Amino acid sequence: MNKLMLIFGLVLLLSSASAQEFSSELWHDGYLVSTDQDSIYGSIKYDMETNIVQVQQGNVVKTFSSHKLFYFEIYDKLLENYRQFYSIPYNVNYNYKIPILFEVLYEGPLSLLAREEIVQETVSNSSAYWGSTYIRDVVSYTFYFLDKEGNIDVFTGKRNDLLQIMRKHQHDVKSFVKKNRLKTDEVPDLIRITAFYNSL
């Protein structure tokens, strides 16, 4: 009986993992502005790992690299929210910048940006009858801060690093984070902290 429960549980886990969908794998309604200032409307699919965006209009699919686009916006049907992305020059090596795709999570004097990738994580699952581990795909975010001068700082998610980036109002930010019990590695909290910093 226990063996049967184990097999049934594994089938459930595998089927739920394989049925998982990610925004970057779907087509979304939206529009794109190219570097030629053309606005192109249609179904949009993006890939932040390759910095490629596709726009489908009828039976025609156009592909744009981050070098050829300025901005795109989608209505993400999975998250049920509008999302905005820019192609922004970024230092990939010392003194060498290339435009790559960033999602804008909060726009202001200090803007919060993000890049996403699909990674694998190991999950432990236990119940009264059996215990196991399995691997699943999840979306992982890397956060960045863009200042008014166009400088982009990668953010590790650690509070001390955040306070260094926001050193101009470090004491106020530290108090705000502590008072509201905010986590500096979670999107909603990080947006709140960025909005508070920009209000000072």
Score class of each variant (00 low, 15 high):
residue 2 N to W: 00
residue 3 K to W: 00
residue 4 L to F: 05
residue 5 M to S: 08
residue 7 I to F: 10
residue 12 L to K: 09
residue 14 L to R: 05
residue 15 S to L: 11
residue 18 S to D: 01
residue 25 E to K: 04
residue 25 E to M: 03
residue 30 G to Q: 07
residue 31 Y to Q: 12
residue 31 Y to E: 12
residue 31 Y to F: 15
residue 32 L to H: 01
residue 32 L to N: 00
residue 37 Q to D: 15
residue 39 S to R: 15
residue 39 S to C: 09
residue 41 Y to F: 11
residue 42 G to E: 10
residue 47 D to M: 06
residue 47 D to S: 09
residue 47 D to I: 02
residue 51 N to M: 08
residue 52 I to F: 09
residue 53 V to H: 03
residue 55 V to A: 07
residue 56 Q to C: 09
residue 57 Q to F: 00
residue 58 G to K: 12
residue 60 V to T: 14
residue 60 V to P: 01
residue 62 K to C: 00
residue 63 T to W: 08
residue 63 T to V: 14
residue 64 F to I: 00
residue 64 F to L: 00
residue 64 F to N: 01
residue 65 S to A: 09
residue 66 S to G: 03
residue 67 H to D: 11
residue 70 F to Q: 10
residue 71 Y to A: 04
residue 75 Y to A: 04
residue 76 D to W: 08
residue 76 D to L: 07
residue 77 K to C: 01
residue 77 K to G: 04
residue 78 L to G: 12
residue 79 L to I: 05
residue 79 L to F: 10
residue 79 L to D: 12
residue 81 N to E: 13
residue 81 N to T: 14
residue 84 Q to M: 08
residue 85 F to Q: 07
residue 88 I to P: 01
residue 88 I to Y: 08
residue 88 I to V: 12
residue 90 Y to I: 10
residue 92 V to Q: 13
residue 94 Y to S: 12
residue 97 K to F: 11
residue 99 P to G: 04
residue 100 I to C: 04
residue 101 L to D: 01
residue 102 F to S: 09
residue 103 E to D: 05
residue 105 L to W: 04
residue 105 L to D: 12
residue 106 Y to N: 15
residue 110 L to I: 15
residue 112 L to C: 11
residue 114 A to G: 03
residue 117 E to S: 07
residue 119 V to P: 03
residue 121 E to R: 12
residue 121 E to K: 14
residue 122 T to L: 03
residue 122 T to M: 03
residue 123 V to M: 03
residue 126 S to H: 11
residue 127 S to D: 02
residue 128 A to M: 07
residue 128 A to C: 00
residue 130 W to E: 14
residue 131 G to A: 10
residue 136 R to A: 03
residue 138 V to R: 06
residue 139 V to F: 10
residue 139 V to W: 10
residue 141 Y to H: 14
residue 146 L to Y: 01
residue 148 K to H: 02
residue 148 K to N: 05
residue 148 K to F: 02
residue 151 N to M: 04
residue 151 N to A: 05
residue 152 I to L: 02
residue 153 D to H: 11
residue 158 K to R: 12
residue 159 R to Y: 07
residue 162 L to G: 12
residue 166 M to G: 08
residue 171 H to I: 15
residue 175 S to A: 08
residue 178 K to P: 01
residue 179 K to D: 06
residue 180 N to I: 11
residue 183 K to V: 11
residue 183 K to D: 13
residue 187 V to K: 14
residue 189 D to T: 04
residue 190 L to H: 06
residue 191 I to H: 06
residue 191 I to A: 07
residue 192 R to K: 14
residue 195 A to Y: 03
residue 195 A to W: 00
residue 198 N to P: 03
residue 199 S to L: 02
residue 199 S to P: 02
residue 199 S to C: 03
